[in-house]
Design a binder for these strands. Structure first.
Length: 310
RNA sequence: GCCGCGGUAGCCAAGGUGGUCAAGGCACAUGUCUGAAAAACAUGGGAUUUCGGUUCGACUCCGAACCGCGGCA
């Protein structure tokens, strides 16, 4: 067993459309009801979703509604305007402090979401170098070719230049940004803060694709297109919507008449499927994850985890 | 029925004038990830409709069959 002086954190993860929200509420309600059996006063949920942090992005992100929360407090939803840039480091900071607040209430935090980068920033406790993105610098560097950018990086940090993806301009630019400030790209430190139980929702690809399809048509009927129009009217650029990806990307293309309805639907379905695959690429290699098929399995793993602590 | 055009991987598609391993895109599979992550990237497997002929050698030329498209009847 790992050291248990760390406080406990339960994480519910899995690909998009796997049913994380539903499960988290079920588990949360159960733990709330049975809290006498456990050393905490109740449950609060922290969202680990890189898009649900934005206000006004509701239908397209499948954001949980007030009623669906069933009285369980949720954190890190609707915390920033979609006009504003946001990043993992900001997320991490807010999440840490939210968890701290929850602990002070003697409650247990449930981290729920499908953004692996965000999840692992919490679980692993990465310490990001305290250098904010320099968007002017990035914009300038953007004009250069990958190979010339790589040369710049080489001059500062040959090791990083060797290891970085040679055609991934975005990554190379960030590396230069860091190398300019620190001489080299700082090696990231890990500082684990929690003893975690990672619960992954097990689901076959076929079922998942069906669920994505169903959910997609539901979202359209819930006014997802209108939501994107509204964001646009609120001043978001097409580029910004494009960068949000998936629903926001494809609906923006559709509204600009760059693609027809049919193309949008098909492209969107495919992109979501690909997204789910990329999520799973992170999760598959994490052997700590307990893969569970239903609530009952989740419940048992949870009990075992909480009991081990005692 | 006749004439024309076309038939290259699951789909779209390049391949003047015949000669080592037949572009590329999508899909599929696998992966990368350290302040944009629903983002941004990487790697991989798979094809010349069929049958004859010409030729040292045919995806490429000729003929036929089959299939598709257009036109004429």
């Amino acid at each position: 067993m790992e050291k248990t002086n760390l406080s406990q954190l339960i994480v519910i993860l899995g690909p998009t459309a796997a049913g994380k929200t539903d499960l988290s509420i079920q588990l949360g309600q159960y733990l709330n009801k049975e809290k006498e059996r456990f050393p905490f006063a109740g449950i609060e949920i922290i969202s680990a979703d890189s898009r649900q942090v934005y206000k006004g992005m509701d239908v397209g992100t499948g954001k949980i509604t007030k009623e669906e929360m069933k009285g369980i407090p949720h954190h890190l939803i609707d915390i920033v305007s979609p006009n504003k840039k946001f990043s993992v480091a900001q997320y991490q900071k807010k999440a840490f402090s939210a968890i701290e607040t929850i602990e002070k209430k003697n409650k247990l935090a449930l981290l729920v979401g499908g953004s692996p980068f965000y999840i692992y920033s919490i679980v692993e406790g990465w310490t990001f170098p305290p250098l904010k993105p320099d968007w002017d610098l990035r914009k300038n560097l953007e004009k250069k070719s990958c190979s010339s950018l790589l040369k710049i990086l080489q001059g500062k940090d040959p090791r990083r230049a060797r290891e970085i993806e040679k055609k991934n301009k975005r990554r190379i630019i960030r590396a230069i940004e860091l190398a300019q400030a620190y001489g080299k790209v700082p090696i990231i430190q890990k500082n684990k803060r929690y003893q975690t139980l990672l619960l992954g929702i097990e689901i076959t690809k076929e079922v998942l694709h069906q669920r994505i399809k169903k959910r997609l048509s539901k979202r359209f009927s819930q006014g997802m297109t209108a939501e994107v129009k509204k964001l646009r009217e609120a001043g978001l650029s097409w580029q910004r919507l494009e960068d949000f990806g998936l629903e926001y990307r494809w609906i923006a293309r559709y509204l600009q008449k760059k693609v027809n309805y049919q193309t949008m639907i098909e492209g969107l379905q495919k992109d979501i499927e690909h997204f789910a695959k990329r999520q799973m690429t992170w999760f598959k290699k994490d052997k700590r994850i307990k893969w569970i098929e239903d609530f009952e399995a989740a419940r048992q793993e949870t009990i075992k985890f909480l009991k081990d602590k005692k």
